[in-house]
Write a protein that binds this DNA or RNA. Structure first.
Length: 223
DNA sequence: CCCTGATTCGC
DNA sequence: GCGAATCAGG
């Protein structure tokens, strides 16, 4: 597997989104966790809370790496490394980031899924390739009973439907003034007399059929 | 033990 | 540039 632009983009998004290297590697497929980390570093995007980075050390004690080939020439047993313990005083005075800071990670306005459009009901359409990243849990809210808007206050809503009132839809679902007819039904039918006449058409002989009247939800919007 | 990211270094 | 090996902490 090679690092195509798509894969790099996905890696970047997920990394910045907080996904672990393992998750990213699994999502991308064909790469190991180490590959993801290595690539992330090469891309320059690191600086993420690392469990092993809680303590910051200017010195680099990480030296004993693998030396498979011929051992490095050793000048001799003369160890000349005083390793002056100059400033060992750094107990707990300076600690800019308390390791696991519980702050809710300031919302980044930079990298958010692009909003292509807003659909009915307020859901957000996203562009292809955009992926919903872990979203913080919604803060607790005080729920209040929904108050019907004045427009539909005296109209028949979905909750008002029962066996005795006409269910003929008026308007289009999703629109603020969508409601139902609400008349008393033609006994034995789900609609009132008038809408039964629209819902049930007598079968005409072949050749004498006429274009059917607009059905609910069917035709173009006419207002 | 598992997990995590960081780093090194042969390829 | 890539990533396995390794390190080091939780």
């Amino acid at each position: 597997m090679s690092w195509t632009d798509e894969r790099i983009e996905k890696l970047t998004k997920m990394w910045e989104g907080g996904a672990t290297a393992s998750q990213i590697a699994e999502e991308l497929g064909g790469v190991s966790r180490n590959a993801v980390i290595g690539k992330a570093h090469r891309l320059g995007l690191k600086a993420r809370p690392s469990p092993v980075k809680a303590n910051e050390k200017p010195a680099r004690p990480a030296a004993p790496k693998k030396a498979k080939p011929a051992a490095v020439a050793q000048p001799g047993p003369s160890e000349a490394k005083p390793e002056a313990p100059a400033a060992k005083a750094a107990p707990s005075s300076f600690s800019p980031e308390p390791a696991s800071a519980p702050k809710p990670a300031v919302e980044k306005t930079a990298e958010r899924p692009r909003i292509v459009s807003v659909g009915p009901g307020g859901f957000l359409r996203q562009g292809p390739g955009d992926q919903q990243q872990p979203i913080p849990p919604a803060p607790p809210r005080r729920l209040v009973p929904a108050k019907p808007s004045p427009e539909i206050a005296d109209k028949t809503s979905l909750l008002d439907l029962n066996d005795r009132i006409c269910r003929w839809p008026m308007g289009h679902p999703g629109e603020p003034d969508f409601h139902f007819c609400g008349e008393k039904v033609n006994p034995g039918f789900p609609y009132c007399v008038e809408h039964c006449g629209r819902a049930y058409q007598a079968q005409l002989p072949r050749g004498a059929r006429r274009p059917p009247p607009p059905l609910p939800f069917g035709g173009p919007r006419v207002r």
